[in-house]
Computed example of a mutant assay.
Amino acid sequence: MITPIPALDSNYFWVIQPSADTNAVYVVDPGDAAPVIDYLVRNQLTLAAILITHRHHDHIQGIAGLLERWPVPVYGPDSEFIPQVTHKLNDGDLLQLAGITFRIIGVPGHTWEHIAYFSSSWNEISPPLLFCGDALFAGGCGRRFDGTAEIMWNSLQKLAALPDDTQIYCAHEYTQANLAFAVAVEPDNQELCARFEQVKQTRAQGGITLPSNILLEKRTNPFLRCQHPGIKIFIENEMHQIPETSAEIFGALRLIKDTWPN
């Protein structure tokens, strides 16, 4: 079972409970200890380990508080900015946790050390799953802080190559704002427009829009669709430039989104 803990302005801290038969759980990107402690205590759960995707404070600020109560392993990228990491992970590594095998995918771009956790089959009935932090969002992607547009585009292509039914557990509830921008980019994409209307209804009722999945993102997320002619035309109209490669289109699209009114 995977449960979100809503926290801070828009974050979800994901709690992974591998089996209903155990009270040992794992938490992904705890940016604040208090809501995690509250959730675990209320549900009589115990923390087994912490998984980190990247260095930003809203993903790591809760580590110290959790370790005071549960001195557990901390898995994450090799970064001087996350000294609490006890087990450093790199692209291609395999992580075994209570019967779940995660393959680590390096996804630099949002930050240079960013990693994602992918499991192709964590039990007999669930589809593959992905914990991707801020690399890929429902309907969007994270801002580019480190490296070139080509580096981040290549990272997103790694994620787009995962199985279509892979469930995407990203770290923020940004879906409605992301899709508002996506509709401006591709107003003729009917599947995108329908998704936007559905998401608006879900949020109006206080619902969560996650997880998404890889196939839905490939059909409706402009940051995975930079090879489509309509995206290039949008860039040309907005920036009066003619980007050639998909990476250049991605870079221009990300710059436009950075200043787009929400």
Rank of each mutant, 00 (worst) to 15 (best):
P83L: 09
A204E: 15
G62N: 00
G206W: 12
P128D: 02
L192P: 08
S155M: 05
F250Q: 04
L129T: 14
Q17S: 13
H228L: 13
T86F: 08
Q17I: 14
K257T: 01
Q201W: 09
L8Y: 08
E244N: 07
F250E: 00
R143L: 03
E186L: 13
F250S: 02
I52T: 13
Q227R: 11
H228D: 10
P30E: 12
P73V: 14
H87P: 01
F223H: 08
Q96R: 07
W14F: 08
G65P: 03
W153F: 15
G99V: 03
P6A: 10
E217P: 06
N189Y: 12
S119Y: 11
G99D: 04
K88C: 04
A48Y: 02
P30A: 12
R143I: 02
A7F: 08
L97N: 04
C226L: 06
W112K: 15
D29W: 00
V28A: 01
G76W: 09
A7I: 15
K257V: 02
F223V: 13
D21W: 03
G140N: 03
G139I: 05
Q17F: 10
N11S: 15
G140H: 01
F145V: 04
D93S: 08
V27M: 09
K257E: 15
I16Y: 13
L66C: 05
L162N: 07
T166P: 00
G207F: 10
L136D: 07
Y39G: 04
N43S: 11
R225M: 15
R143C: 02
P243W: 11
D91H: 14
D164M: 09
S10A: 15
T53I: 02
G140I: 01
I151K: 12
A149R: 05
S19T: 15
A135Y: 06
P18E: 08
S19P: 06
Y75E: 00
Q61I: 04
V72H: 06
F13T: 14
A194K: 10
R144C: 05
S119W: 07
L224F: 11
I100K: 09
W14C: 05
N178H: 07
T111C: 02
K200H: 04
C226D: 06
L136A: 07
Q241E: 14
H228I: 09
T46H: 07
Y39T: 09
L89I: 04
L97W: 07
A149P: 06
D91Y: 00
G206I: 15
D146Y: 06
Q61P: 00
I60G: 06
Q227W: 11
L47Q: 01
I256G: 08
F250A: 04
N23L: 03
T46P: 01
F118D: 01
D258I: 04
F118S: 03
G142R: 08
W70T: 14
F131Q: 05
A135P: 04
A247K: 02
H54A: 13
D93F: 07
R254Y: 00
L210A: 13
N213T: 14
C141L: 03
A49G: 11
Q227P: 00
W70H: 13
T259Y: 10
A48K: 14
S79K: 10
S121D: 09
D164Y: 06
K232T: 14
A7E: 12
I100N: 12
A180Q: 10
Q201K: 15
P229A: 11
G109F: 08
N123F: 00
F145T: 06
G92R: 09
F234M: 08
N213D: 15
L192Q: 13
A204I: 11
Y117H: 00
Q201L: 12
E80P: 05
